[in-house]
Design a protein around this nucleic acid. Sequence first.
DNA 1: CCAAAAGTGTTGAGTATACACCCATGA
DNA 2: TCATGGGTGTATACTCAACACTTTTGG
Lengths: 250, 250
Amino acid sequence: MSSAPDRAAAVTAAARDELATAPVSVGSAAHDAAIARPMVAVDTVLFALESRGLKCYLARLAGGPAAGRWAFAGGLVRVGETLDEAARRELRDAAGLDEAYLEQLFSFGDPSRDPTAHVVSVAYMALIDDPRRVGAASAKYRGGRWFAARELPELAYDHALMAEYALGRLRAKLEYTNIACTMLPATFTFAELEELYAAVLERPLDRRNFRRRIMAMDLLRRMPEQRRGAHRPAALYAFKHRSVGAIQML
Amino acid sequence: MSSAPDRAAAVTAAARDELATAPVSVGSAAHDAAIARPMVAVDTVLFALESRGLKCYLARLAGGPAAGRWAFAGGLVRVGETLDEAARRELRDAAGLDEAYLEQLFSFGDPSRDPTAHVVSVAYMALIDDPRRVGAASAKYRGGRWFAARELPELAYDHALMAEYALGRLRAKLEYTNIACTMLPATFTFAELEELYAAVLERPLDRRNFRRRIMAMDLLRRMPEQRRGAHRPAALYAFKHRSVGAIQML
DNA sequence: CCAAAAGTGTTGAGTATACACCCATGA
DNA sequence: TCATGGGTGTATACTCAACACTTTTGG
């Protein structure tokens, strides 16, 4: 990663071509070389599976224009960090997470999405294998908790839109990638894998067809151990590859 | 669309929560309420079909750090405009286009993608039905031309990445949406539709299977007229819906 | 021995692919 | 009449969905 140039140089250099070719549009801010520009933020929709279905983590904003409202972990991007890094930093900040599968979704740039300033937000989706991995939040938030993904409270800014977008992407990728590996522990039973699919897709799956479909993709390794419970023991499986990008199921 | 607040208010308001909770990170820029922040740009990969296949429009940058190199139409987003609006404005500027199908692809935020400043770029794909619709470019560019999408010259910044991303998206959406309607004139023959698919997907299609597949989707209206040429006349068709979002072919 | 979850195959319908010949026209 | 591109049908392989009973264990 390259180091960031100092502020004045950065602003003037990148604005140069536009200043040169469209000086009229600069308006009253032109007394300074630093023209008013939209800022960049990231916001991350965090999902995890819990017993009763798919959950989504929200924190209550402590300050700012939307103080008191539920929102996803997010904040302004700093000079010199990638968007992914910013998203990870904000996840650490808001949910104490230091590892998560992260995927960029879409950028929301409506100038009225934040009433106090023009902030372009790059929305992310994050997936973790255990909701109990979220930890303490920073002072920017007044605590957070998991909500059923289907029954989110009213959200700050345009975060409801982001939630929809994220759920759509998660559903789609469940069907044609091995993304499920990010939401399960290292080993798991077939029933647990099926519950994950059923919870995210919100429809029951046929056990035999599901097992055949997954097996045909050759994604899983059968473990020697079994899970013993109150009834017949279940075979344990692990994903052959724990990285998502590599595998396309189609 | 809301009007943008004035510059000082905007910067301080949006930076407030971060300033309050992470004052240490502000560093030497803290003498001003306006912390150095990445800027936001848009860049648009413009495609059109020409006789010999899929084409991609590039312009030569006149100034800036990448002066003289080929690049897609793009530039900094202004306060108060949406990302889509910024992309359309830059398309007008660089290619004289005032109508195009536009779709956001992905945001590229690596701080080193532009060596002179941290600019986050939101990449777009644009599709038009006739490459001759591009007109005069602004002073920001030293002319532009169409290149075969498969043989682009060396590109400025990370535009080669954007091109790959755009081509992937176009291919994917051709298979499961009616996006083809944006790249064809109001009426067209079946052969022209098939040529579009073959050019974008870069593989030959079986004429009979293709016709059956398209017909099964019920996207086309048969026009009363025919196209007369040197040989047997061809039936003309039009898309029932010329908007992309509405139709999912699966 | 009973309750509860794990595990296992077959059939039928629909979909996708491969493939070759006649048709209509202008030159 | 011939060259050129337009238009059409069938047979087969494959994929997906529907469907119910047996097995294994702990209590």
